[in-house]
Design a protein around this nucleic acid. Structure first.
Lengths: 345, 345
DNA sequence: CTGAAAGCGCTTACAG
DNA sequence: CTGAAAGCGCTTACAG
């Protein structure tokens, strides 16, 4: 019994001596199909290695069972070095999708270019997950457009009031607070902060806010001169740290807004002959795999990527199901390693 | 002018005062449409933010413009630590897909479970890319089944004669040869090889073959006692190195079949108080980002992931277009770092 | 250059 | 419990 091309439900219907809709019902487990008939149909389907045509069923049902992940990456347009933090997010998002019986389309986007957010408009995906750093001010307008169009999407980022759409993020404020408190506990008093601290980078800004709050809680005053902008790349961290050193301001710790920035700072400090943690303690944020392997191993704030991926997918599915959905900030965890361990003064 | 739900080509046809097929033609840039008419249609489509329904067009055309990436991962079933090497592959595959106007479905699979290779059967994808290590003998049968079913697929791995399907891989033999020759140049004479060297792991086996060939080219004889099985994880490398040390065989270099194995070996050697590279030189294979950051930085063989991703996608598209397609082994590059640099004896 | 017609393979009311 | 009918939104011969 050979059939040219792939088998369709009609082929199965003929072979089973029933109508095509009955095949469809049996395959989707409808209760209103005779048990005998169902068994016969399933057996034939198995033999023919039949799979429901997703294009046809998606067209008919007007939903695809697919989510799209849009990965924004500006610093590294061409080569394949993505922020390692996002890799673990990707892993957990994929797994969460599988768990919920959805497929995942993955697409890398330049922040600058027009977003190919037409995955949903073209019915290729039921909703979109946005992932990636970049200047928030440059994307907020496009986010608002997505909301206007009624596109279903969630984004990874700081979940703050007044933002368009639903955001899932880490509790960046708490992370910034905890790691700064830790540095203070180690006896550090003049702590430099590497990373943007303004509304262009809300996640970093929250980390800075936590940082400043921890200082104030100990009666210290955050100094603008001890902060230097940086984005999440090793080079940016390297440059920022050098710039701060050249500024002549003394500091006994670097609180970096991300692990990559911290790793760049480690390199800068080494180049200038400063010992870590003895001369300058260093901390990061993210807990990428590298953090534990660099020397000295990096104290950092661990983001719960596993829960993050799960929540992103679940919130998005909620949105698609037209349930009320709120953003959320996920708790973080301080991970202390050598880069910040020193004798209390 | 509001339309309930999303606009369709019929809506546009009404508004433009033409028939629906004409809209379809104009949108796909068919030459047999009046320039004026086309302009009007495109303008309306833009205003309505119209996007062709992919389900409908895929159903009609019987192809989806989508490829599926199946990621196999046995060692790390649950947590999100994927072999970093595959991350860069993912990056380059995604980019290559975008370049060719295709979307990419990504799916993680347990090696043990039944493959969800039904992406193609369900017409969700036109073809499949298989990526991931594991026992070749356990997967070959399933690969043969894919070939039988006429599924379009390419896999990353050793491209050797007699294998089912089309493989794209690195020139593992040359890599194993080059890095061993380098160790010999550094004065090493008793080189341990960590990694499976049999047909269960064809890529490793090829690396070993190159390794052995380089020894013979210098008049040395490969010794079975200096080889120890290991899979691509740090733990496995760590254990294999300890086992070899416990075996009492002396060696002055470790030629690891992958960077992760080498990093595990570095840890084992450190634990036993052996200095790298002075007591034992160590080399890896892959050139994952970590390789340059561990201490001492790891000498390794760089695989060209960028070209790899491109070739995987292009070969797969060739297969889909029913062109004749051959497997290929991509040239590799030796990257020398501290872990193997020593005074010639 | 354009329209009327058919059909891709499903799912889901609607009858019975 | 089952079948006949309609329709999801496209694309592509087929006429004109």
């Amino acid at each position: 019994m050979t059939i040219k091309g792939k088998a369709t439900s009609l082929d199965i219907a003929h072979m089973a001596g029933v109508s095509q809709p009955t095949v469809s019902r049996a395959l989707r487990g409808s209760p209103m199909v005779n048990a005998e008939t169902r068994k016969r149909i399933l057996e034939i389907a198995r033999q023919l290695n039949y799979k429901v045509d997703k294009n046809a069923s998606s067209l008919r049902c007007q939903q695809s069972g697919t989510l799209a992940l849009l990965f924004f990456e500006d610093p590294t347009p061409d080569d394949s070095l993505i922020n390692p933090f996002f890799h673990s997010m990707l892993g957990s998002i994929t797994r969460a999708c599988a768990l919920h019986g959805h497929d995942l389309l993955v697409s890398f986007q330049q922040l600058s270019s027009d977003w190919h957010a037409d995955f949903e408009d073209s019915n290729k995906a039921d909703g979109i997950i946005l992932l990636g750093y970049g200047d928030y001010h440059e994307s907020v307008e496009r986010l608002e457009r997505l909301v206007e169009q009624g596109t279903h999407f969630v984004r990874w980022g700081a979940a703050l009031p007044g933002q368009p759409g639903v955001s899932v993020g880490s509790d960046n404020f708490q992370g910034g607070f905890d790691i700064t408190a830790h540095l203070l506990d180690q006896g550090c008093r003049r702590i430099a902060f590497l990373g943007h601290a303004d509304s262009h980078y809300p996640e970093f800004a929250e980390r800075y806010r936590g940082h400043a709050e921890a200082l104030r809680a100990r009666g210290l005053t955050p100094e603008a001169a001890l902060q230097h902008d940086a984005i999440t790349t090793e080079d940016s961290g390297h440059n920022a740290c050098l710039a701060l050193l050249d500024r002549g301001k003394r500091f006994d710790a670097v609180c970096a807004a991300s692990d990559l920035i911290a790793i760049g700072a480690l390199r800068a400090l080494r180049e200038r002959g400063l010992r870590v943690p003895d001369d300058v303690a260093v901390t990061g944020f993210d807990d990428i795999p590298l953090a534990g392997s660099v020397s000295p191993a990096l104290t950092t704030v661990q983001q719960d990527t596993k829960q993050a991926g799960q929540l992103l997918v679940e919130k998005l599915l909620g949105l698609i199901a037209r349930e009320p959905v709120e953003g959320i900030n996920i708790p973080v965890k301080l991970v202390v390693r050598e880069s910040s361990r020193r004798q209390a003064l």
